[in-house]
Design a protein around this nucleic acid. Sequence first.
DNA 1: CTTGACCTTCTAGTCACTGGAACCTTTATA
DNA 2: TATAAAGGTTCCAGTGACTAGAAGGTCAAG
Lengths: 128, 128
Amino acid sequence: MNIGQIATQTGLPAKTIRYYEDIGLIQPGRDANGYRIFAETDAHKLAFLGRARALGFSIEECRKLLALYEDKDRASSDVKALAKGHLSDIEEKIRQLEDMRATLSNLVEACAGDHRPDCPILTGLSRD
Amino acid sequence: MNIGQIATQTGLPAKTIRYYEDIGLIQPGRDANGYRIFAETDAHKLAFLGRARALGFSIEECRKLLALYEDKDRASSDVKALAKGHLSDIEEKIRQLEDMRATLSNLVEACAGDHRPDCPILTGLSRD
DNA sequence: CTTGACCTTCTAGTCACTGGAACCTTTATA
DNA sequence: TATAAAGGTTCCAGTGACTAGAAGGTCAAG
């Protein structure tokens, strides 16, 4: 399979797939004309990467997950530890965003939003 | 005031303050020795920027907020529109992160996390 | 007079792509 | 068969918002 077909199949842009090769996540073969040729295992890896990225795992976490995925002697505790670490990162980000939302929505609600210049949002930002 | 003092006062790293000058958010004066000198208005602007950034406004949004802040003839509706736009960005991000959390925590809970290789996290990532 | 703390500029690195240029190969059509 | 469109290739540069580090100038204290 060529890169275009694999891109369609996995939903990943061709640029991204080339980038993943560049940083060593996949190693597709090459045709006589220089075109990349993707085997089924490459397709699986890319789909795996797409899902892991969609769950917010960083590229380096994905690399580790992929290594665990390919290691038939892995311990599931290693995978779980990685996933739990990422899960708490996500939860921390949610908390931060919720804090922002709370503060900002208070300011927004306090603001009349009319033609006058008086604005609690700006005063809220300019002094505590 | 020198950059170090203003950094302490505002809680922003000196590097960040230089960067903000670089991209035109502030225009501190210069002393004869080349050192930046910060007036009270600069201190206020930087504090304003710090709070806006803490609420997740992008630099370009901050630039607009600062312009509105300095425009005594602004309409508060313009500020409110900007803030509401950003608020819905935040809410969208929260939704996405909550989706990730839900999927990932299901996977994590399904995983025994022991010495065995069987892992629902990996199988969940490898096929739908 | 030297030490250390502070300041300056500049370059390059972060993360995960993404856009674009310049060029080559394959496939479809006139 | 000529050619054009649609694919592929590489390489370079840009994104956002800093941050690290190098190489050097300045200032206050002992």
